[in-house]
């Protein structure tokens, strides 16, 4: 088994391969924040943040933080050549208007119809919606970055989400520490299995029906 840190980096490393030169991307909190570490140096990615920034740079060195410059999670970021600022309403116009190529979202549950639930557990955890529903409704491609199972080992990739949805029929790709799974009109297709595990193990930890093609790749 992998520890939490290994899982985060394995998933982030694999997701980085989905990002192409010139893509406008919004990375959520959690695992998605590690994705930029693994982007190839020769591609230029335009990062988007809900508060109203496009094309920002990485976290500043300690002591060089600007008090008026953070991402949507409140973390300090930097201004680089090409950075632009605008109000938060325009930021969401960029999302809803189809100008965002890709978003990577954490998930509590996803299901075989591409539904995603990540904003609340009724009675237990109600932090609010934030920008997640806007991203689900507007981003051209949605990748769910998640652990394959919950902390008790129960499945998070389900036949049908049981938690309140953040977005219906919107997830394109699910990346976990065990597998890369594509959401297709026919259902969930396993594309890759992580080198540390095997397909039987993936099936055992997945509630959803899985379509297993003759050729499956590997990632590590």
């Amino acid at each position: 088994m992998l520890d939490k840190n290994e899982i985060q980096h394995l998933v982030a490393r694999r997701i980085a391969k989905e990002i192409k030169d010139g893509d406008v991307v919004n990375l959520g909190v959690g695992i998605p924040t590690f994705v930029p570490i693994y982007l190839p140096k020769n591609i230029h990615v335009i990062t988007h943040s809900e508060n109203g920034i496009l094309g920002f740079g990485p976290a500043p060195k300690k002591g060089e933080e600007h008090p008026d410059l953070t991402n949507a999670g409140g973390g300090f970021i930097t201004e680089v050549k090409g950075t632009s600022y605008f109000d938060s309403a325009l930021s969401f116009s960029i999302i809803r208007g189809g100008h965002l190529d890709l978003t990577v979202l954490g998930a509590l549950q996803v299901d075989q119809e591409g539904n995603i639930a990540n904003w609340m557990i009724p009675g237990k955890f109600v932090p609010g919606i934030g920008g997640a529903m806007d991203l689900c409704a507007g981003a051209k491609k949605i990748i769910a970055a998640m652990t394959h199972t919950d902390k008790d080992g129960g499945p998070k990739i389900l036949k049908k989400c049981t938690l309140p949805l953040t977005g219906p029929h919107c997830v394109d790709l699910i990346v976990t520490e065990m597998a890369v799974i594509e959401v297709t009109p026919k259902g969930l297709v396993i594309r890759e299995v992580a080198s540390w595990t095997n397909i039987e193990d993936v099936k055992k930890h997945t509630e959803a029906d899985l379509i297993i093609p003759s050729k499956i790749g590997s990632f590590c």
Partner: peptide, 12 residues
């Protein structure tokens, strides 16, 4: 005029 990401929701 505003400052960097401190603009955010203020103009709205």
């Amino acid at each position: 005029i505003y400052s960097k990401s401190a603009r955010n929701c203020n103009p709205i």
